[in-house]
Design a protein around this nucleic acid. Structure first.
Lengths: 251, 251
DNA sequence: TCATCGTGTGCGATATACGAACAAATGTCA
DNA sequence: TGACATTTGTTCGTATATCGCACACGATGA
């Protein structure tokens, strides 16, 4: 790609959008400039553009994003058949298991939820399509890392901020790589309160008919209700069933 | 705002993103140019920029959006406290009702889902945060229209493409305005298969402590299972309860 | 009163859009 | 099959738009 095939004004604008959500919902021009590292004049033009197009509101002091901004993500969700295909299977899985079920894809060091069927609430934060979690400490993340060639998985870990969310979180790269090896071998990943105290989850990969991974699928349950040791016998058969059904559907 | 405070390159890029999702997940440069009405060279630069930033993939012929694009919508969802606040209430409501529950806001002539707890699948299309439905024929849309001053509601209808999705869909402006008046008076809206055959729903407004509407809340159920006449007695008390609980929480 | 902070604006240097032209790929028809 | 027409992707030159910087202005508080 040539230098001139890059629209930096566009790239800068996208950076400005992403500046929201990091910390606050309302940003002043200066704050947004500080977060993005761009010049105030540039950020101001971008924000006024967003406002003019209805993607943002401006009260003379603060800018905030409007729901119209969801159109951008929606362009992906509705354009990509995956979420729509997976959703009914998730609904069924969630109902049969009596627990929340989700599907996600990998984006850099994070997994991104693309569909979800929630039953009762177990996590402190609420997950929805578009939500992100670090891959290294999430069951679906482990599944994705196991699907990568080993050097690549290692590289993702290297770029990750490996911090201990709970006393159970594994943060040692070698230990994580060993666990990822186990996941690759046994075909599923278990997380026992590594992300949040009281939360266990089990995940399997979703593969297409050419055995390429296209998403990860999981079930989450409260640890008090379902000990990690029971996750496998309780939910793995259900997950395997859904996995098999989707393998045929996914092109 | 001055002419020069508008970054047209940014605006054009956003248009290009929205070109996806309309029809296909994969677009060639020419297709995207046709949809957006922009010059091929301009679209090409925008697409290459998206690709360079990891928001899109390019295989030499087709461009497609990547999950990274969800970051943009996520910036809104995580920056705006509303979805996160509402989600646990939806989960609980959905579980108690045994049906799907959703919350939405109004954006132009459409409602935008900001949170959802889905039970079994009743609709042909799958709804998720970011999904859109025309306001005039959705229960939450009627609630939003009822919350607007009458001339403004009329103006939204005027801008809407009032088409009959089913034989039950009301498309006459006066009839719709009369129905919206009823909704305003009784405090809830019922949709009986106006959006899709076999689907009934009931919605109420979510207000903050100053009685301003901040979202609409609904429960959807299969008409075969729950006739429209029974929606009120079955679900209105649950909705009212959730509405009251949230009124205190919403600032 | 003077710092400090956030915002708006003028300007020269630089980046970008547009339309046209070209090359390559694809489709069409005898 | 071969010749021609059409479509698509890419490049180029130039008029125009945008960037980053420097500075001005108003509000707020020490």
């Amino acid at each position: 790609m040539r230098e001139t095939d890059f629209v930096s004004g566009f790239a800068r604008g996208l950076t400005v959008i992403e500046a929201f959500g990091e910390t606050q919902q309302k940003l002043t021009i200066t704050e947004a400039a500080k977060i993005t590292g761009l010049d105030r004049a540039t950020v101001r033009r971008s924000l006024l553009t967003l406002s003019e197009l209805g993607y943002a509101d401006y009260d003379g002091k603060f800018f905030s994003l409007t729901p119209k901004i969801l159109r951008l993500g929606h362009a992906y969700l509705s354009a990509t058949p995956l979420p729509a295909i997976v959703q009914p299977y998730l609904d069924q899985l969630s109902e049969r298991a009596g627990q929340s079920a989700s599907a996600s894809v990998l984006d850099g060091t994070e997994i991104v939820y693309i569909a979800r069927a929630s039953q009762r609430r177990v996590m402190s934060i609420s997950l929805m399509p578009g939500s992100r979690l670090p891959a290294y400490c999430a069951s679906m993340g482990r599944v994705w890392l196991a699907a990568l060639p080993e050097p690549q998985a290692r590289e993702v870990l290297a770029r990750s901020d490996l911090k201990a969310n709970t006393p159970y979180t594994r943060t040692d790269t070698e230990e994580l790589m060993a666990e990822i090896g186990r996941v690759r071998h046994q075909g599923y990943a278990i997380i026992d309160q590594e992300l949040e105290i009281g939360l266990c989850s089990i995940a399997v990969p979703l593969q297409n008919d050419r055995n390429q991974i296209v998403a990860a699928l999981n079930i989450g349950a409260p640890a008090a209700h379902v000990p990690a040791a029971e996750m496998v016998e309780r939910y793995l058969p259900l997950l395997k069933e859904t996995q098999a059904a989707l393998r045929i559907v996914l092109r």
